[in-house]
Design a protein around this nucleic acid. Sequence first.
DNA 1: CGTAACTTTGACCTAAGTCAAGGCGCGTGG
DNA 2: CCACGCGCCTTGACTTAGGTCAAAGTTACG
Lengths: 242, 242
Amino acid sequence: MAVKCRDCPLRELDHFEKFREDEIAFMERFKVGEMTVEPKAPLLMEGSNSPQLFTVLKGMGIRYKTLSDGRRQVVNFVLPGDFLGLQAGVMEKMGHSVEATTRMTLCVFDRSELFSLVRHNPKRAFSVVWAAAREEHFLGEALTTVGQRSAPQRVAWALVYIFQRCEARGFARGSEVPLPFRQQDLADALGLSLVHTNKTLARLRSLQLATWSNGVLRVNDMEGLAAQAGDVPDPPQVHPLI
Amino acid sequence: MAVKCRDCPLRELDHFEKFREDEIAFMERFKVGEMTVEPKAPLLMEGSNSPQLFTVLKGMGIRYKTLSDGRRQVVNFVLPGDFLGLQAGVMEKMGHSVEATTRMTLCVFDRSELFSLVRHNPKRAFSVVWAAAREEHFLGEALTTVGQRSAPQRVAWALVYIFQRCEARGFARGSEVPLPFRQQDLADALGLSLVHTNKTLARLRSLQLATWSNGVLRVNDMEGLAAQAGDVPDPPQVHPLI
DNA sequence: CGTAACTTTGACCTAAGTCAAGGCGCGTGG
DNA sequence: CCACGCGCCTTGACTTAGGTCAAAGTTACG
């Protein structure tokens, strides 16, 4: 039932660094199980201190923070290969919540083993640092986008970003990638209202740049979309933890 | 001339975790020197791969990203105890630039030693992870603030945040802390225009909540200021690297 | 003293928010 | 098998928070 790290399909992707034989063995000891959750299921709660850490194997979700008045900031979209729970693992509590959008399957690790992982396997420890730095880097980009760019730029930027990430994970079929989120999620990620996000998407559609409907994003003109976005991110090689 | 880690004044602050004797010795080997820079001096450049990492000993600065059209996002304010260059240390390049605002003195480390630090000193390695997670946590808060809050809330939030950080570092004299930045810097941090930031600060002043002039922030009514901000951050214990 | 870098204030404008009303697809139960 | 409800998307009309422009104070400094 539970997939062995050895057979993990994520490792096959060019996007992820290759494991050495001993690293695979090490991770198999670190791994305590596998979990499947339904859409809407909460995985981690802001302020909580989960005993588990996860690596996403399948499915998508969102990281978000909720304000006391109910407003919500989507902090990032969660895709396969993402590591969840670092903050809880190293500080006492999570800074944001994580929720499944589609059905997801996750690799489960024991939080208390994180320290021993750092102690006994420096290469893997470096991957943890890398993951944290990667997220920090992304959040800097996102902050800049939300702080400085216009609505059309923000939306275009987000679509390019998501498309690239999906593509790197082998989800793209031609110019299409699955995008199972609601417009409200994107709006909350970009600090825009739902209505304005919708109208902005409509404009990108009428400009023949990108179409997002029924959970599928089609990018007709990546050049043009990137031009709309202004500056665009760059997705490098990643270290998964699995 | 160069201060020994043993005598580093930062270690005295309650805010930072105490070092063990062997950790001090270890850091002294890791440290390659000390540097002093003048205001406006660039410390790290976005996209570059600095051979050095720094811990701030004295002075303040800003982390920021620049867009191709000249707009700027201030990503965070840099205070003593902050570790600079993690992204360059672990990925190939920085995601943002760092510039001195006041004269600063920095502890200099050799980037290439970072890996050996992780390998040979797990406790310190954990501190690196901690620092990265801390920054990630902050950026999530900042993103939420910029994405969801109104101008008065943003400004109040930022003042509370900065005041707390300064206080934890022992900079507070009563209700005053040094704040040597320009209004433009705050505006760029919050995604607001200079003019609107100025007017918002004026309102906080007239409400008797906080006054910021001549590089000094005085918080008259922390309760009220926090109320303006809505939800407020929490500054826990930190691990410095020194 | 003059000039350059910040701050402050007022008048006006526009990007984005809010409100409101439909539309559309889908699942459920009568 | 149809209709009702629900979640999500779409569109139009109107409002507003915050941006832009412009000009005048204020310091600090050479």
